[in-house]
């Protein structure tokens, strides 16, 4: 860590002073970018599949992620089992998402248009963050890395924390699982069909409203799991959700809303961009993401993988 502080403080000098550390340091940072990128992929995949079928951009996504983080923290605190805590976060947010869809969102379909749906999810976001603060407090919680993950693994060129390798692997497994679910199962087929043409699926006698509930639940659960995974890396605090939601929006805009491939590619790209910019010029690490988004919008307004007319 000492080297990273020095490197950030002396960006120009660092190149000449720390030659032996460089390869190791930069490779580790590349992996850090991948960690952030994978988390962003999970969040924006959830946003994308919800948008694809329901036509709703879920502003509450970040605060539902927060629920995942805090549920995981609580279970971890009580049982000491991190795997159990991830499972709990997944199930809790899945159920919460399905309840929200059933009790609130479903009343807005078709009736009011996008404006009020956006505002509704914004209201849900505020409500949930308020409840999280009520239950767990306004100050952050220190999220301990599970004992098996606190050591470092030797990856030939450099050593890297085991836990972060786990995050990358777990997120990748989840992404593949979602891909297989959407492309290899009957339910996934229905969801993709609904994304193409909701009315037609409805007319074929399939209960689209239950499909909506399921997809919203799955999308939210992806965010909740991402929240549990990122917990030991970032800690648990009330604005974590919004902090991750905004770059996820950028991912969705850059990748193209409704595109699975777009979310994956853009998510990793944005994660790397943010972290690597931080390495060379830390002041710009936040801004660079938005500058990149602006460039993509200028050159290719529909996003890298977006299809014309699918969204608007």
């Amino acid at each position: 860590m000492a080297s990273s502080i020095l490197l950030n403080a002396l960006p120009g000098v660092a190149d000449t002073l720390f030659v032996p550390l460089q390869v190791e340091y930069y490779t580790a940072q590349l992996f850090n970018g991948l960690v952030l990128g994978m988390i962003l992929v999970l969040i924006s995949l959830g946003l994308t599949i919800i948008f694809g079928l329901l036509g709703v951009i879920n502003f509450a996504h970040g605060d539902l992620l927060l629920v995942g983080t805090y549920v995981s923290w609580t279970v971890m605190d009580a049982t000491g089992s991190f795997l159990l805590s991830i499972g709990a976060a997944l199930v809790a947010t899945l159920v919460l998402g399905m309840i929200l869809e059933r009790t609130l969102l479903r009343y807005t379909y078709g009736r009011h248009g996008a404006l009020l749906q956006l505002l509704l999810t914004f209201g849900i976001a505020e409500l949930i963050r308020g409840l999280v603060i009520l239950v767990w407090g306004r100050t952050g919680k220190n999220f301990a890395t599970p004992s098996w993950g606190s050591s470092s693994i030797d990856l030939v060129l450099f050593t890297y924390p085991v836990y972060r390798v786990f995050v990358i692997v777990a997120a990748a497994a989840l992404i593949v699982a979602v891909y297989l679910f959407l492309n290899r199962t009957d339910l996934g087929l229905l969801i993709r069909a609904g994304t193409q043409d909701r009315e037609m699926v409805d007319m074929l006698g399939i209960d689209v409203s239950r499909l909506y509930m399921l997809v919203f639940g799955i999308g939210v659960a992806l965010a909740g799991t991402a929240g549990a995974l990122i917990g030991p890396v970032r800690g648990a605090f009330p604005t974590l959700g919004i902090e991750l939601l905004i770059p996820a929006f950028v991912v969705v805009v850059v990748g193209g809303l409704g595109s699975f491939r777009g979310s994956v590619v853009a998510g990793i790209l944005i994660g790397e961009l943010q972290v690597m910019t931080g390495v060379f010029y830390s002041e710009a690490s936040q801004a660079i993401v938005f500058v990149f988004m602006a460039l993509v919008l200028l050159v290719r307004p529909r996003g890298l993988f977006g299809q014309e007319g699918v969204v608007e």
Binding site: L119, F122, G123, E126, L127, R129, G130
Partner: peptide, 9 residues
Amino acid sequence: EIFFGAVII
């Protein structure tokens, strides 16, 4: 936040 969110909803 709770009331604010509830009122919006």
